[in-house]
């Protein structure tokens, strides 16, 4: 994520790369479904240990594919420092304190944290909701997240074709936020008899997730600007904040 800023200083290009990254995150999520489908269709499960083995195979295969792509990334990515020299940016080290003095750092940090919180916590509870609350078919446990990923992928692709400014980032973030508010309210009051409506809601959840995530990550790019030597700290610290907050939110919810 922080390397995106080293590749280009252009704000539109940075948003395009953030949306491209989001689209491929969805591809990665969907590929796990393909792996699971292959494993479940090629192996038989009659006992508890057979099912355990199937899940072991899904885990090993996905880890192996992930490692292959890490290898491709490390071997195939050119050193971004070469491009920084073209832009004429200095190598002067930026202190951590520099970011703490910026109001925008706290604003972007909170926005990113809240966005990831909405996305991650909702994903964590999705399976329980469709099975335990809505009493939907077991296939819904896989189908609903898949619909979310597909709609999120499509929106991420569309977002690559647009021209981006700061105001547009704010507007599209708010559009995603409004969608999530309506989706959240629908989920909160959805009766069991209308459980099929969850498939429609999941389309809008996917759209809202893509809008908020891409613009939220792009706001970090705006914060970094041309201070490229500090971008790893910005992305690292905000991602840390997001992970801690998600853990705390699930802990608090589970305590009920």
């Amino acid at each position: 994520m922080s390397m995106v800023n080293c590749i280009s200083l252009n704000s539109t290009s940075r948003v395009v790369m953030a949306s491209c990254r989001n689209a491929f995150t969805m591809v990665a999520n969907l590929s796990l479904y393909a792996v699971a489908l292959v494993v479940f269709s090629t192996t038989k499960s009659t006992t508890h240990s057979d099912i355990e083995n199937q899940y072991h195979w899904i885990a090993y295969t996905s880890i192996f594919i992930g490692c292959c792509f890490v290898g491709v990334f490390h071997l195939g990515t050119k050193e971004p420092r070469l491009k920084i020299r073209v832009h004429g940016t200095s190598y002067a080290r930026i202190s951590w304190a520099y970011w703490f003095k910026k109001v925008l750092y706290y604003q972007v940090g909170l926005v990113y944290m809240l966005t990831r919180l909405a996305q991650n916590v909702s994903q964590a509870y999705l399976a329980f909701y469709v099975i335990e609350d809505m009493r939907m078919a077991k296939s819904a446990k896989a189908l609903v997240p898949a619909i979310i990923y597909i709609s999120s992928f499509i929106v991420s692709i569309i977002m690559q074709e647009m021209y981006w400014t700061g105001q547009r980032l704010k507007a599209y973030y708010c559009a995603g936020g409004v969608l999530w508010v309506f989706c959240g309210a629908s989920i909160l009051f959805l009766p069991q008899s209308l459980s099929a409506f969850m498939y429609v809601i999941s389309v809008f959840i996917g759209i809202a997730n893509a809008l908020m995530t891409v613009t939220g990550v792009s706001m970090q790019s705006v914060l970094v600007g041309s201070d490229l030597n500090g971008c790893a700290f910005v992305y690292g610290s905000l991602s840390f904040l997001d992970k801690v907050s998600c853990g705390l939110a699930v802990f608090v919810l589970q305590s009920f």
């Binding site: 809240l114 909702s122 509870y125 704010k170 959240g184």
Partner: peptide, 27 residues
Amino acid sequence: SVTRYGLGLLPAVCSLAGMAITYTMKL
């Protein structure tokens, strides 16, 4: 139930808070 709060209420509140902060930002 807790799943409804986790999937419905929390994301909605987070989105509202996010939008409010975005409004104060100077991008």
